[in-house]
Amino acid sequence: MHPAYSVIFLTTATGAGYGLLALLGLLRALDRLPHDPAFGLLALGLSLALITAGLLISTAHLGRPERSWRAFGQWRSSWLSREGVLAVATYIPALLFALGWLVLQRHDGAWVQVGWLAAVMALATVYATAMIYRSLAAIPRWHHPLVAPGYLILALATGAVWLNAVLTPFTDSHELVKAICFAALAGGWLVKISYWRAIDNAQGESSAASAIGLGEVPGFDQVRPLDPPHVQDNYLLKEMGYTVARKHADKLRRLTHLLAFLAPLVLIIIQTASSGIVGLAAAALAAVCVSFGVIIERWLFFAEAQHKVMLYYGADRV
C-alpha cells in the first residue's frame, strides 16, 4: 500500500497524543502527578496539539475536505466514522480535565476523576484507528490480530516516553512513569517482533487463479499474467501497488528496533543513572528517538502491506 505521509503523520501524532492524554488522565486520577499547572500546561498542551495537528492533517488526504463533517454519520458500520466520532467526543472530557487542572486548579473530586473518562476515550479512539486497518480483509497484513494491540501499545509507549520527558524538569522521582515506559516499550517490541514474524511466514490465502475464479477448475488452476489491460500505472497500481524491496524493508526494520525500542530503553536507563542536564537530555532524546522510530514503523506498516488486487497485476499469492 502506498505510504501516504498524511496518514502516517495522522496515526503516529494522534497515537502519541492520545497515549499521553490517557496516561495523564489515569495518573492524575490516581494522584501520581505533580499539581504544578506549568507541568499541566506543557503536558496537556503537547498532547492536545499532537491530537489536533494529526486530525487536521488527516483531512489533507481527502478528495473533498470541505465535506469531512459527513464522516460522522455512519458510526454503526464504519470504523473510520467511529474514529471520527470518538476523536471529537474525546475533546469533551479532555477539555474539562484541562479546565480543572489549569484554570480552576482543582486537584480532587470530579475535576480529577474525569481523567478516567479522558483516558478510556483516548484509548478507544486509538483502537478505532487500528480497526480501520484491521477490518480490511483485502489486505491480509492489516487483517491480523496483532494490529490493534500494536497500535494501542505503541500509542502508550510514545505517550509514556514523552510524559517522562516533560516530567523530568519538574520532578526527579517519577519511577512509576519510567516503569510504564519500560513496560510499554518492551511490550511494543514484543508485539512488533511477533507481528513481523507472523507476516513473513504467512502463506497468502488467495492466488492469481482464485482471483480470476479458476482456483478450483481442473486443468486451469495454474495461471500467469499475459497481457496487462493498460501499460501505464493507474490508480490501483499507484495506491495499492506500492512495494518496498526486501533489503530496504530489512534495513528499516532494524532501524525501528533501534529507534523505537532499544534507544529509548537505554536512554531512560541512562537518565535514571544520571541527573541534571544529562538526565534531561537523555529523556528528551528518548522521546525524539521513539517518535522517529514509530514513524518508520508506520511507514513500513503501509509499504509492506500487500493488497489482493495485485493478484491481477502479477502477484502469485496474497
Binding site: 500500500m1 488526504h61 481527502l62 478528495g63 473533498r64 475536505p65 465535506r67 469531512s68 459527513r70 464522516a71 464504519s78 473510520l80 480501520i132 480490511l136 480483509a137 483485502a138 489486505i139 488467495s206 482471483a211 493507474n234 490508480y235 490501483l236 495506491e239 495499492m240 493488497h307 489482493k308 488486487v309 491481477y312
Partner: peptide, 24 residues
C-alpha cells in the same frame, strides 16, 4: 456525499473502484 477518503477502494479486494482525482 463522497468525501474521497478512498477507504472503499482499499476494502474492495477486486480493484473495482477507481478514484477521480479531478472531482475528488
Amino acid at each position: 456525499i463522497c468525501i474521497g477518503c478512498k477507504l472503499c477502494s482499499w476494502a474492495c479486494p477486486y480493484g473495482a473502484r477507481e478514484f477521480d482525482t479531478d472531482g475528488g
